[in-house]
Design a protein around this nucleic acid. Sequence first.
DNA 1: TCGATGCGTTGATATTCGTCGATACAATGA
DNA 2: TCATTGTATCGACGAATATCAACGCATCGA
Lengths: 120, 120
Amino acid sequence: MATVRVAGARGVEDQQPAECCPSLLGAPLAPDDAYELARGFHALSDPVRLRVLSLLADAADGEICVCDLVGPLGRTQGTISHHLKILGEAGLVHGDRRGKWVWYSVDRERLLRLRSALDT
Amino acid sequence: MATVRVAGARGVEDQQPAECCPSLLGAPLAPDDAYELARGFHALSDPVRLRVLSLLADAADGEICVCDLVGPLGRTQGTISHHLKILGEAGLVHGDRRGKWVWYSVDRERLLRLRSALDT
DNA sequence: TCGATGCGTTGATATTCGTCGATACAATGA
DNA sequence: TCATTGTATCGACGAATATCAACGCATCGA
């Protein structure tokens, strides 16, 4: 996590989350796979971040700007931005700057890959 | 988390994880639901705990004792016990004392309920 | 009864995390 | 050019976390 390079709102996609998530219950999980998987679930381990994803998914056009998250979530703008950065680094959301605003959307595919790790 | 009552290895099942997990992407997540869900994912947010679940699922008879986890995971017995407690409080594993050993197993149903929260 | 073994807990320590306030950066419009 | 607005980052703080060593308790075998 210390070597993660961050270069603004559009820098969140320069990550390489494991191409696909190894199944948790299939074979014994290798330490590296476990670490990658834990990074994904860690992004989901905060109530504010879960509500961010929920609000994003529920928004019209599947997009929402930071300013519209501050009110519903009851956190400061800096805190919301911080959580969006974490979600972005996990590959769960993407930000698209249009004018003054940055529109965020959920990466459902990444979410489904995480889900598949819990398959039986 | 502060009010969680713990009474030994067999006390891990006296929890009440939300009966069923609300879908993350379905409707806007209520703060309480988000908190409950985050508790579950938090238990999955550590590589050691993920490997514990993996080893448990892969073990013969689906059971394993703490002593057999210490070696593969490279952590002290106290640390393993700590992680098992967290997994137990999240309802993801159950411990059964038989003689000197406590045999742990995965609660696959609980895992599937967590997975269903990531449905689209 | 006593030593050995497995396990949970406690105390200590270093690290990480969530949050805020303040500030810096970016884009727009006057 | 300058003020305004939206967003990202920084510094700081308290709380939570992962880890180990040490200890206490329970169980089993001699």
